[in-house]
Design a protein around this nucleic acid. Sequence first.
DNA 1: TAATTCATCTTTACGATGTAAAGATAAGGG
DNA 2: CCCTTATCTTTACATCGTAAAGATGAATTA
Lengths: 243, 243
Amino acid sequence: MAKTDTNGETARSSRAPRKTTSTAASRPAPRATSAKTETPYHHGALREALLQAAERVLERDGLSGLTLRAVAREAGVSHAAPTHHFGDLTGLLSELAAVGFRQFNAAMASSCDAATTPLARALARPKAYVAYAQAHPGMYGIMFRTERLDYSRPSLHEAAEASFAGLANAIGMMRQEQISGDALTLNQGAAIARAWSMVHGFTMLLLDGRLEDILGRLPEGTTPERLLEAMLMAPITGKLPGP
Amino acid sequence: MAKTDTNGETARSSRAPRKTTSTAASRPAPRATSAKTETPYHHGALREALLQAAERVLERDGLSGLTLRAVAREAGVSHAAPTHHFGDLTGLLSELAAVGFRQFNAAMASSCDAATTPLARALARPKAYVAYAQAHPGMYGIMFRTERLDYSRPSLHEAAEASFAGLANAIGMMRQEQISGDALTLNQGAAIARAWSMVHGFTMLLLDGRLEDILGRLPEGTTPERLLEAMLMAPITGKLPGP
DNA sequence: TAATTCATCTTTACGATGTAAAGATAAGGG
DNA sequence: CCCTTATCTTTACATCGTAAAGATGAATTA
């Protein structure tokens, strides 16, 4: 029997019907098998299936539960199947992060479009930012708190870049300036870094529960959104001792 | 021979002289051994030795290299020794984070004390914050980007709390208000959240290299410190469309 | 159409990690 | 002096990432 992997991780012994998780028909029928849902050897769209499985695992078991093997298990394939499509764990995480960035960008864009007044427009983006992170903390974690991402992957690089561009653009609009693509003044850079740092930092602290201390001391029932709003609008009443 | 752990991880076969890492005398001589540095069975101060070893491993091999076994190896003890002192990995990381928070708080405090002008005093804390993170990115990672921390541990809770208190205090001084411990107005809370979010977010983005894009577009040779300064002082020239 | 190539998926294997449990060793109190 | 107890080591095991080799069927070519 030798020293095998010991865990009964065979996706299907040989011809056993696939475990068919989720909606039972999430996987598109492969090209042209011998009729029946007999589970073909070749999946047909494993890459996308794996990404969706990864998203499910992430939402269900959190960041620490998101392993290559768990994803393969969720998708009903052998534990080594993902390797062929993503290379290694970094590959899978990076592609998943790219998916996250696209969702994220879409959420912010649609939220901005829905805003009518200038004030609402200014607050829409940061609010959508935090709202996405709260709705998908796992995804946000993959995107922003994983050391293990490979930004040289075009899909990730592109999606993350779009996120930055959207932000810089919004700041530019608010300052009613043209932000030329290649050069920035110190003040422009500071405005962008400031907006991004503020929202990103707020989100991190909020997700980590580190704002509980503040929220608990605020007037009864103040929501994080309200605090965010106040934070963004505060006209520096507590002014820095200026030069 | 059975199926052993297979890796030659025996710290010392039986009486072999300890590997004596670092300064060769970092470990205080145990109580009263039979003279000679013969490596006693009981270490004498393993807990502290393990924390120091963990810090070394963290600086040398980064966050991903910081494992229970690696720390034990570095300290020259068996891989299960840490368990007795920290329970599990979460325990070790939490205690290490507590050490980090204490260093962190001390760095900010001394930096504040050294400042003379009011402006310098206002900028000292955030600058020290970022400086610490840049000097000890691993530690900062342990403190702020690990999900695996147990804040119910008194040492960690206390050290992290002190960090928050220092911040709240500084904001209170700048606003020339008394910040009563138990209640905050929305504006006060917003000011604190804002300062913390801004500096924390900036630090995270900086460490993750996500500000390179901005820094590269700024006037030749603009340092992160300069950007931080500009970010903190910017008198909202790009004003939000007010109500 | 038949043979062959090639991408895709599975098996098997190995080293590393966290953790539990049992054994060894010394320190200290009765 | 013996015995209890804290400390450290050994041994064991499930799980993980990853590499390598085998199986399978789709596509291409002769």
